[in-house]
Design a protein around this nucleic acid. Sequence first.
DNA 1: CCGGCAATCTTGTCAGTGTCAAGTTGACGT
DNA 2: ACGTCAACTTGACACTGACAAGATTGCCGG
Lengths: 190, 190
Amino acid sequence: MPSRRYHHGDLRRAVLDAAVEVITEAGPAGVSLRELARRAGVSHAGPIHHFGDKAGVLTALAAEGYDLLAGSLTEVRDRTGEFVEVGVAYVRFAIAHRAHFEVMFRPDLYHADDPAVVAASTRASEVLTGGVATVADRTGDADLAVAGVAAWSIVHGFATLCLTGALSPRFADDPETTARAVAGMLFRRR
Amino acid sequence: MPSRRYHHGDLRRAVLDAAVEVITEAGPAGVSLRELARRAGVSHAGPIHHFGDKAGVLTALAAEGYDLLAGSLTEVRDRTGEFVEVGVAYVRFAIAHRAHFEVMFRPDLYHADDPAVVAASTRASEVLTGGVATVADRTGDADLAVAGVAAWSIVHGFATLCLTGALSPRFADDPETTARAVAGMLFRRR
DNA sequence: CCGGCAATCTTGTCAGTGTCAAGTTGACGT
DNA sequence: ACGTCAACTTGACACTGACAAGATTGCCGG
């Protein structure tokens, strides 16, 4: 068994997977290029060829995260047609893909101006802020754009508070249900 | 002028101030103990005596941040009596004390179980979640605790999105006004 | 006044890290 | 067979966090 072939095969993916592992275990601050290389079974400078530098690894992870998020939100919107469920899906994504999420909103860790990242993040935010038009604001006269920001804010804030452990266990233990209740306070379907 | 006395005078404060500077310039990831020591004008191991380790510096910063936040929220609540303004104050704090705020909600960067931190953070969250009782939920029948989480979520989310640069300039340029509108969508005074 | 003493800061050192330059391997087209 | 180029290795350098040991200083009791 060639446990150490010269060419890895898919080092790029292996490094990203290792990054997810490490971040899950120790947070984004615990990531080191050399550790990722070790887990992927290559020499310490192997990953550089694929990502340029450390920030490049996290850039790829952020782009992948925004892509997954946009896809997930779109799917839920098209399947359920209920805007509140899109918000719940946002929270579900943050918890299921915690490592990605924790990197995505730390622009100081990666190259935030990367085209792939901005494209994917724009796509995700548009599903959220745009979908607002499909529900009734409970006052009926609010600015739709402001409502979009409000929707994004409330689900993003809830997700962040969940992940940082700021919420009491009563809410953190069943985040999806809590998220539905919280999001429902802001919007409700017609 | 003794530009380099052996005893600094208030190294602790100088290091914390330097940390705020660095974080403002390069984010929490750009902080290095040695750089802080350099800016404070002491040798590379000077700060360790006061903070134990690098995480200790950020722990002190987080505790200070939660303290400032709790004080600010309490002051606004007592002065204005309007809950929405407490939310606006939360956002104002995040922007005015960006460096503190960016550390506070990254528990992987510091000793999150530090007594001073948990005490101050509890104090701050209680002002927010507790103040909900003073306003009317617009449906009139929601769980107050859930409403507290919603309030915290929406202002925290908005603050975070502002700081990460995720919002369009139209909203990011006057965050306080936008925050008032966003918070007003969730609650309004009786 | 003065002698220790503890807090404060320095110096030296170590393993670990990010990044670059140069070399090595191997696959693939011609 | 041969060149070529991407993928990876090896080696090096400056920087970092952490620790140990030493130097300096303010201070407090006598």
